[in-house]
Computed example of a mutant assay.
Amino acid sequence: MSSGGGDRDQPDTEAEWDDEPLADDTAAEVDPDAAAAARRARLRRGRAPRRESRVTIAWRSPLVRIGVAAGFVLLVALGLVAYFTPVLAVRTVRVDGLVAVPEQQVLDALQMPEGRSMLRLDTNQLAERVSRLPKVRSARVQRVFPSSVRVTVVERSAVLYFESPDGTHLLDCDSVEFAIEPPGPGVPKLVTDHPGGDDPVTRAAVAVMAAIPVGLRDQVGVGAVVARSVSDIALELRDGRTVLWGGTVDSSRKAAVVGPLLSQPGKVFDVSSPNLVTVK
Rank of each mutant, 00 (worst) to 15 (best):
L22T: 13
V258R: 12
L216R: 14
L133S: 02
T26V: 09
F178G: 09
A36C: 01
M112F: 06
Y83P: 03
E14G: 13
A227M: 14
A224Q: 15
D199A: 07
A205L: 12
A48W: 03
S147F: 02
S2R: 11
A211I: 01
K254W: 04
P102N: 07
R143N: 03
V90E: 05
R94I: 11
I233D: 08
G184N: 02
P113Q: 01
V220C: 01
V136G: 11
A139Y: 04
A82K: 01
V153W: 09
D19L: 14
L107H: 11
S117F: 11
V76Q: 06
V55I: 06
V277R: 08
Q142C: 07
A207W: 08
R132S: 10
V68Q: 03
F72N: 07
R94D: 13
V64I: 08
V136F: 06
V257G: 04
A211Q: 03
R137Y: 05
G115L: 10
P86Q: 06
G223K: 02
G246F: 00
I66Y: 07
G46S: 15
D96M: 06
A28E: 12
P134Y: 07
L276H: 13
W17S: 13
D122N: 12
R65P: 02
A58P: 00
A234T: 14
T92R: 13
G196K: 07
T26Q: 10
K280L: 14
I233G: 02
D19V: 15
P195M: 05
E181M: 11
R94L: 05
S147W: 01
V220R: 11
L75H: 04
G266V: 12
M118R: 01
R91K: 15
L237S: 03
S252H: 06
K254L: 04
F162T: 05
Q10N: 09
V201F: 00
T123C: 00
Q219C: 09
L237A: 02
L107C: 00
A227V: 06
T248K: 00
Y161G: 07
P188S: 11
A69K: 05
M1L: 10
L119G: 15
R120K: 13
M112V: 13
R132H: 10
V201A: 00
L74Q: 05
E29G: 10
N275D: 13
A234H: 12
E16P: 06
R241P: 10
Q219I: 08
G6Y: 09
T26A: 13
Q142F: 11
S138H: 02
R140A: 12
A109P: 05
V208E: 06
V176A: 05
A15I: 05
S175G: 14
E20R: 15
W17P: 04
G67Q: 07
R137D: 14
V191F: 14
I233T: 01
R132T: 10
A35F: 02
R140F: 02
A58L: 10
Q111T: 10
G197A: 11
T13I: 10
R253C: 05
R42G: 05
S2K: 08
W17A: 15
A100G: 14
A27V: 06
L78D: 03
F269C: 04
R156I: 01
F162I: 02
A37I: 01
